[in-house]
């Protein structure tokens, strides 16, 4: 801090600003900051696991849907073949 007489400082607001002294931060501040940093790292890991879980669920869901569609199309094909096997009736009368 610069040594200025209080009289000068009172007249000049800018000189008054220079009388503000630097203070030491609270002793526990660095510890709190490091705790928050570590907490943030844990949160980030938690979020990552959540995202991985969501992505895995989506992937499994897509595989299941694919399986369902394949099953459906096979069933439809079978049904079509069965229909073709049944003899078709005609409305023509026999010529006796």
């Amino acid at each position: 801090m610069k040594n200025k007489s209080s009289k000068v400082a009172m007249n000049d607001p800018l000189a008054l600003l220079q009388t503000i002294q630097k203070v030491d931060p609270p002793a526990a501040l660095a510890g709190k900051i490091m705790q928050k940093v570590n907490q943030q790292k844990v949160n980030f890991q938690k979020v990552s696991i959540t995202y991985v879980g969501i992505a895995a669920s989506l992937f499994i869901g897509i595989i299941c849907m694919e399986g369902y569609f394949i099953y459906q199309s096979n069933t439809q094909r079978k049904n079509k073949a069965m229909v073709e096997l049944v003899g078709q009736t005609q409305n023509n009368l026999y010529h006796e």
Partner: peptide, 18 residues
């Protein structure tokens, strides 16, 4: 502000508010 000297407090309050 803990860095403000007691004898300057009144004047500085005004300046800081400004």
């Amino acid at each position: 502000h803990p860095g403000i000297l007691l004898e300057q407090k009144e004047g500085l309050q005004r300046v800081l508010k400004a």
